[in-house]
Write a protein that binds this DNA or RNA. Structure first.
Length: 446
RNA sequence: GUGGCUGUAGCUCAGUCGGUUAGAGCACCAGGUUGUGGUCCUGGGGGUCGCGGGUUCGAAUCCCGUCAGCCACCCCA
């Protein structure tokens, strides 16, 4: 060894050992089953997309976080020799940042998809963000989207799908916070805040429950929003929280009225489905991605700083690919966020991983006989590991303990002559000599 | 991007008012004799004390820089 190489995965990325994989598969399995029960069909898209597909969809923040893939060989040489100045000269592909934009590309590309395309997609995405608790550079999203309709049924169905997933996983206390882009914009304008300060105001506003009223006032004042305006905005939002507020907003003309009416429809429609007790109107909810146009959603759960998922309506995104404007709405669950909370709360059932039987081979038994016996056991449906080396039986049983294998099948000359193994239950210590053919039933019975 | 904390064995950490060959627990390996584990006992391997520089007779320990990790904020899933 001349020099040691770091054995850690890159920052913000992780290895998953057997127990991790089992937990991830458990959750993904529930997600997949539930999404399919709602009639969604699967989609998988490439890890890499063209930068033209990705850029300009997420807002400037998002563009900054894209992983870009350097040109190779001649193209790179040419770019470097040509005095390449911009990122675009050096790369024209990048890792996907979410699953929504690839979906939009697919819908724009395949014109023969069903009019209502309901797809789910469970794949990793990459963001060159700074890692933190529950935030990674490589993480999995579990998306459901419906394209081709503006009807509130679609909005309610995606909310219902994620609500069902969370309930089946054992969550009871989550909230699906909903708001509306157009309504929010109108309320900000009502407060007399200039359009160019709108984004800023929304970001600070999002912190209301953390920093409090005075904190928001202070922070906005520092950024050039008059305190009177902030107070006015807070008052407007405070009024919007009241139960009857949405109804009176819905009577207004213009975008605010439209937004409020859409939210009322969503609340009413959602009330008939699994999201019923979870959907809550939150006038301060503002989401970062720039492609949202109508209702926006976010999953809130106690004890988690960020959200477990989010989504919304994006009626203009597919049209950005220049073929046809198709409305769409979707919801995305963050797999790692779900896992994090489940781990903290001890919500996982016992998940069987690894072999059920360790085949222990005594010194006088040929390798070929061990393989032959293991093959018979596997044919009966058991997960069987053969102890590879020759070792004292004590060592082999010790190894079985460290693996957590519940049974050892001991194969020696005596057993070989009988076509049997000595099956030892490692929890009770009991052991019996059994014909190979009966081992499967015996193990399953315990 | 901002602020704070921490870098000593595979893991969790002790050791630091500067002083002989740097420690523990867990893990790993080997023994406590022949085909019976979990407990126990004994022994063993494994560290250029994150990296670079400085102060000093002498640095894991003090100073500067740097990198990495963690936490909070920001943002997000």
């Amino acid at each position: 060894m001349s020099q040691s190489i770091s054995t850690k995965p890159p920052s913000g990325m992780r290895d998953f050992l057997a127990a991790d994989v089992a937990r991830r598969r458990h959750v993904v399995g529930v997600v997949q089953r539930v999404y399919e029960s709602f009639g969604f069909v699967p989609l998988e898209t490439p890890t890499i997309e063209n930068l033209t597909t990705l850029l300009g969809k997420y807002g400037p923040e998002g563009d900054q976080l894209l992983y870009r893939i350097l040109h190779r060989r001649e193209k790179l040489q040419r770019a470097l020799e040509g005095g390449a100045a911009t990122e675009l000269d050096l790369a024209d592909e990048g890792l996907r940042y979410d699953l929504t934009v690839p979906l939009a590309r697919v819908v724009a590309n395949y014109r023969d998809l069903p009019h209502y395309y309901k797809r789910y997609q469970i794949q990793p995405v990459w963001r060159a963000d700074r890692p933190a608790k529950g935030r990674f550079r490589e993480f999995w999203q579990c998306d459901v989207d419906i394209t081709g309709t503006k009807n509130v049924v679609a909005d309610a169905e995606v909310c219902g799908a994620v609500a069902t997933v969370l309930r089946e996983l054992g969550f009871t206390d989550f909230k699906i916070l909903v708001n509306h882009r157009e309504l929010l914009r109108a309320l900000v304008a009502d407060a007399g805040i200039a359009a160019e300060q709108e984004g800023l105001a929304l970001v600070v506003l999002d912190k209301l429950d953390k920093v409090g009223v005075d904190g928001v006032k202070k922070e906005l004042a520092e950024k050039g929003v008059a305190v009177a305006r902030t107070e006015s905005l807070l008052a407007v939002l405070d009024r919007a929280r009241e139960p009857e507020a949405l109804r009176s907003l819905a009577e207004r003309d213009g975008p605010a009225g439209v937004g409020a009416r859409e939210l009322l429809a969503l609340l009413a429609t959602g009330a008939s489905g699994p999201a019923a007790t979870h959907i809550v109107f939150d006038p301060t909810l503002a989401r970062g991605l720039s492609y949202y146009t109508g209702p926006i959603f976010e999953i809130g759960v106690a004890g988690l700083a960020g959200s477990m998922g989010g989504g919304g309506r994006y009626d203009n995104l597919i049209g950005m690919f220049g073929k046809q404007q198709i409305p769409a709405v979707g919801f995305s669950l963050g797999l790692e966020r779900v896992l994090l909370v489940m781990e903290e709360r001890g919500m996982f059932p016992a998940l069987g991983v690894g072999p059920e039987v360790l085949l222990c081979r005594m010194n006088d038994v040929p390798e070929s006989e061990a393989i032959r016996a293991a093959t018979v056991l596997r044919a009966s449906g058991l997960r069987v590991e053969v102890f590879a080396d020759l070792a004292q039986l004590g060592k082999q049983l010790q190894y079985a303990n460290t693996l957590g294998v519940p049974f050892a099948a001991i194969l020696g000359t005596k057993e070989l002559a009988l076509g049997a193994v000595t099956l030892k239950d490692l929890r009770s210590g009991e052991q019996v000599s059994l014909p190979l053919a009966e081992v499967g039933a015996r193990v399953r019975r315990v």
